[in-house]
Structure formats: structure tokens, C-alpha cells
Amino acid sequence: MKILVCVKQVLDADGPVRIDASGKWIEEAPAARFRMNRFDEFALEEALRIREGFPGTRIDALSAGPARAAQTVRRALEMGADDGIHLFLDDERYRMPFEIASLIGAYASDRHYDLILAGVMAEDDMQGQVGPMVAEILEYPWATAVMSQKLHKTGDGPDASGTIYVERELEGGLREAFELTLPALLTIQSGINRPRYPALSHVLRARSQALITIPASRPGETDPVSFPAPRERIQSLEEPAPMKTGVILSGNPSEKAEKLRQILQERAFL
């Protein structure tokens, strides 16, 4: 069985996030830290668990991004993916979900993956679109926000068939269950598992293993993997006004604590 896991490299938003000079995306400060999207770590972990249950399964991890995204592909190898694929973008411009989904769709179209996994969304643009878009492009059934899955596989090789039982998350703690015919795509909700730390053996292997790097071409060019025209355009980015109605308490920590207690007492909470 063949599984494709889509992993995205994102800027760690725990550090400062500043708008770049163009006003259309985020500045890459020298100290900026990039890492794998956490939701994709859950997706990769889920793939690794499926492989444990179905020995012989191969896991490809794929990332579409500029040169630095190779680190995230390598991280996926360290976590245990068998092969790492880098759809190489030759600039650092932000791409809309449909552009990325089209690239991944073009890559995956003749590779017969039985299952494609991705995180429920990316932590940076928070769109949650690429997964279901890839599925629709490939005409795979899909389920998003999956909280548990169970694979039923019959046969092996190209004639293999099967289904996957999934529970996806609804509001208020409810779930709904589906059975999808393979090949299928799932986007994985956080909390489905605990992503592992890379084992030393995988880290050593990943160090020497070459990535499969595929250049992604510009719209209209006829490379195997090429971009469509964007369907949306970012007009501007802005830092929201710091506060609409509230106040930021000033003073040293003790003074702030005293003020807070006063306010809470005035409002009869204490």
C-alpha cells in the first residue's frame, strides 16, 4: 500500500510575525524559525501507525515550498517516512491553496496512492482547503477533521481495494462516522494521536538519504507539475488594532495584580 502525507513548512508564530515590505505576506526575519505544521505532524504520525498495522506499506512525505522547505521534508524522513518529495518553488511568494492543491494533484495523479493524509489546516494561513481540494482534483472521496480511522484492506499491489472507516469531528464533542472507498484522502485533526520524536536510526538514515526534488514551473508551462493561475489575490495584510475597547494594565507586576484584584472586587467577582 502507498500513502502520501502532505506536510507544510510554516513560520513558527510563537516568535514575532511581521508584515513584509510588499504588504502582502510575512517577513522572513533572520531569526525566523520554520518548522513542520503541527497538524501535519498528526497526519504523518497516523500514517506511521497505519504502516505498523500493514507491514509493507510505503509512506511518501511531500512538501511544496521554497528551498528551506527541504528541512521539513527531511524532518518527515526523520519521523519515519520512507521517501521525501520536495516540490520546489523557486521563490518565497505565498501561494493560494488551489495553486498548491493543483501542484500536489498533478504530482499524485499517476502515482496511485491508496491513501493521502494531510493536517486539517496550516497554522500560518489557516485556510483548511488544500486537503479537500487535492481530493476533488484526484476524484478521491475525502473526510476532513478526522479524529479516528480504521483501514480495511483486501489484497495487495495495484489490484488492492478496500475501505477506511473514519470518525470526523463535529461541534460540541459530537462525531460523525463514514466509510470511504479507497483510494481516499483524509485531513487529520489535532489530538488524534501523539506525534513521535524521531528515532536515532531514522535521523541517521534521513541524513544520508537524498530527497526527490521536483521543480514546479510557472503557469502555462508544460512541466509535469505546473501552476494554475491564482483564483484569489491578497490585497493587503494588516496588524489588527491592538485593542478595541479594553485597557492594558500598566505598572510593575505587583501593581498590575493589585489593580486586577480591585477591578474584580468592584465588579463583585471576588
Binding site: 508564530a13 510575525v17 500560518d124 483564483r231 489575490r233 490585497q235 493587503s236 494588516e238 489588527p240
Partner: peptide, 19 residues
């Protein structure tokens, strides 16, 4: 222009459709 937030709400993004 549609308004949405990115990076855990730290940045506001204005987007226009092309289709």
C-alpha cells in the same frame, strides 16, 4: 474585499476573488 485572520489571529488578511 474579504477579511480573514492568519497566524492565530495576529494578522488580518484582505483577499479578493479572481473568478
Amino acid at each position: 474585499r474579504f477579511v480573514r485572520k492568519i497566524f492565530n489571529g495576529k494578522i488580518k488578511m484582505d483577499v479578493t476573488p479572481e473568478r
